[in-house]
Structures are given as C-alpha cells and as structure tokens.
Design a protein around this nucleic acid. Structure first.
Lengths: 188, 188
DNA sequence: TCCATTATTGATTGATCATTCCAGAAAACA
DNA sequence: TGTTTTCTGGAATGATCAATCAATAATGGA
C-alpha cells in the first residue's frame, strides 16, 4: 500500500516561501501556492488559515532561518572580523534568490503592524549578535574604534540589502563581491 | 463658463506614480488609479493603454526625473566629492517616500524585459556621470585612487538602495544619516 | 455658430481572485 | 477488521479585477 503524500508542515511551508519570495504577496495566487506546496486547497486553509496568515508564517519562518544562518556564521570563527566576512560572503553567494524579508518590507513598508513586528523581532535578535561581534573586532583592532558598533551593524545590514537588490536587478557575482568588499572597507 | 478638469498628462502621471510607488503594481487597482489621478476610467485607458503600459510609463518618468535630480546634484559643485555628498544627502532627506525604481526591481526582478530595459537605460545614464565625478574626486585626492571608479559608483547606488529600504523598514533620519556617512567613509 | 475632439459616467463583460462546501479517498489508529 | 481523522479535488460563492461599451457632456477651434 504505497504511502502517498506525507504532509510535513515545515516542508510545504518552505515551498510557500519559495513562491512568496519570488512573486511577493499580491503577485501570488492560492492556485500557485497549492501547486507549489503540493497539497489540496482545503488542506491549505485548514492548516494555515488564510493567505495572509500563511504569508506571515512564511515570513516568520524565513526570517528565523535567515537570522540563524547569519548568527552561525558571525559566531563561527575565533576572529570576529572573519565571522563578519563569512556573513557577507554568504549573502553574495545566495543573492541569486530573492530575499523574502527585503521583499516584504518593500511591498508593505510599515502598513501592516503584525508584519512590522515580525521584522523588528528578527532584526533585534540578529543585531544584538552583530553588535557584540563588531565590539570584539574593535577590541582586536580589526574595526575602527571611532565608529559606533550599532552604526556599523546597521551599515552592514543596509549593505546586505543593497547587495540583494543589486542582484535582483541583474548584477553579476563579481560586482556583488566588490560591493561586499567596499562595505567591509568602510568599517576597517 | 467654468473650466472643468484640465487634463494634464504629466500631472496625472505624477499622481499614478505616487500610487504605484506606495503600493506596487500588483497592489494597485485601476479604481485606486482613477481616484488618485482624478480622471475617468475611460480616459485612463484611452490615454495610457492599459495598466501595465501606464506602470511602465510611470517607472520611465520617475526614473528620468530621479536621474535628472541626481545628476544635477552630482554636477552642482566645483568639488566632485561635494557633489557626491549632495546626492547622498538628498537621498537621506527624501527617504520617507518609497522609491518606485527600487520597488519595481524588487517586485519584478528580471522577469519583465521591457521593465529591465528601462532600469538599465536610466542606470547607465546616471552611472556614467557618477563615474566621471568619482574620477574627478580621485584626481583631486578626495577618493582613494586604489579603487575602481565604476566599483565606487556601484557601491554608492547600492547604499542608496540600502538607505531607502532601511527607511521603508522604519529607520529614523539619524540612522539614515549614519548609513550615508559610513558609505562615504568607505571610498575616501 | 457648428463640428470634431476629448473627457465623463455607469453599466457590463469575462476573468480571476480568495474562500467555503461537500463528497469521497486515503491514512492512522483501534 | 472497523472507525476516526486527515487530505484531496471539484464545484460553487461572491467579491474584485482589468478592460470595453455606449451614451452624454464639455471643450476648443473653425
């Protein structure tokens, strides 16, 4: 008796993420979602409520995973600056796929408080670690002590956004690499 | 005999731009457009064809005006670095309103060749002037000669994007100011 | 003044949208 | 095995969408 679907909530959510990050919320239909998630329409509504709740959950999960990956790399090296470099390198490597976080902010700005709250929470968690690591790098003499660690962290994230949108606009790997290099140059 | 509407194509197009930059293409209905443009629905279709053609025209006009403003500031000072600073300062000041160029790239990526061509053309025009001015600044000893002028220009534009999305995500003026300052720090 | 152009308005089309209902198939559990 | 839960797929709902139509009114130039 062949087993059929194996409905794994996290797996189908990842499929939804893939659609949303490419087409945005308004550009995605439930038809696209059920096809990509490979589940029945009714299962989607039973499991996730409605399209907006699913979107919010997708953004939440995406942000959590993205934050986790960034933190892992930031903390993954003895030398703090190397951790920062790793984080930027990953961004350059993965810039081929659109970022759901950036898309979401771009599409909705501050107009949906529930969404804003999600972004804010993820941002806070990541920023805390980034600031911590920037301070370490400053102590090690790798980042200019004249700069505010928070400002440096914000700057890195703004440049991550810049790199991702440059990629979405068609920039090649070498250009993204150069952007990352110049961003690091600013803080050393 | 009171004159009624005075249908000025550029004026109503500006109204369309205001809607599109805030809500994106998919998030904008023709109902929103006719209300904002203050024209009849049929006039919209007669004058602009359809929603997509109107959007493309809006992006084109917006890009042209944005490019013009950037070039004016870039070239507006004897010292090249001051021109670059003015450009960045304007971006920080105006970051409260969403950028239609950024939104458009974020929403559609490379999926619409006609749109991509528009962005590419505007980019090229602006980048040419920026590179020219970066070279001048390098000759004047204001920007590190070790850097490729093209890379510096790309970096500035990526940071403009980063600043604009940071603002759309809720960053305050002082934070945007700091981002701009750090971007300039990278190239000096 | 008359005429052609241009804009408005409301009704209407057909498509697509998100969402729900329902009947039946499969899976999990007993 | 039988029973209950879970998932599916199609049909239907009502809303909204972009776009067109036709009739009317206002405009600008002759």
């Amino acid at each position: 008796m062949a087993r059929i679907k194996e409905f794994d909530k996290e797996e189908v959510l990842d499929a939804a993420i893939a659609v949303f990050r490419e087409h945005g919320f308004e550009g995605t239909s439930t038809e696209m979602l059920v096809r990509a998630m490979n589940i029945g329409r009714q299962s989607l509504y039973d499991t996730f409520g409605d399209k907006w709740k699913l979107y919010r959950l997708a953004v939440e999960r995406y942000s959590a995973e993205e934050t986790r990956a960034h933190i892992e790399l930031l903390r993954g090296t003895p030398r703090a600056l190397d951790g920062i470099r790793s984080m930027m390198a990953r961004v350059v490597e993965n810039a081929g796929q659109a970022c759901l976080g950036v898309n979401s902010i771009c599409e909705f700005g501050q107009s949906r408080p529930d969404l804003t709250a999600l972004h804010h929470a993820a941002d806070l968690r990541l920023k805390k670690v980034a600031i911590e690591r920037v301070r370490e790098a400053q102590d090690a003499g790798d980042i200019a002590v004249s700069l505010s660690a928070e400002a440096v962290a914000d700057f890195l994230f703004a440049n991550i956004t810049g790199i991702r949108i440059a990629a979405r606009g068609g920039a090649g790997p070498e250009q993204l690499q150069s952007l990352s290099g110049l961003a690091l140059r600013a803080i050393i």
